[in-house]
Amino acid sequence: MTRSVFFKFLARLMMPVLLLFSLVLLLRGHNQPGGGFVGGLVGASSIVLMTLAYGADDVRARLRIDFLRAMFYGVGIALVAGLIGLIFGDAFQDAFWWKPYIQGVGRLEAGTPLLFDVGVYVVVFSVTCSIVMSMAEEGERDDVG
């Protein structure tokens, strides 16, 4: 299967943009449209794009992430975010915020909902990637055989 040069170039151009955009979506997600799920999907789409352009083996060789494990780490992060509320607050997933004011930047907002979103981001990112990659690998094997 030959892959277009234009497509490869565009994919490389788009990948950092998509990743940055996914981070923006993640960080604003707790009180504006966005969040871990959308962010994770957008982030994964950058990897999907690279997989389409360069092939699954190439991408996997460079990424070296065990998606299955990453997925469970994501669940772990989300669990920790919920546990903080349970231990220090009233109930599981009780929200805690930390809002320092940084001179010249503005008010920073970080809290357990954001941590939860990070966990969701990791889960969605790795699940999507692992599904697409395994399917792409199967397809490539079919092309050869």
């Binding site: 699940v127 999507t128 599904i131 395994s134 399917m135 199967e138």
Partner: peptide, 12 residues
């Protein structure tokens, strides 16, 4: 989304 992705892989 999750279920359909799994079903697709399964059907394949």
């Amino acid at each position: 989304f999750g279920v359909l992705a799994f079903t697709l892989a399964l059907a394949y």
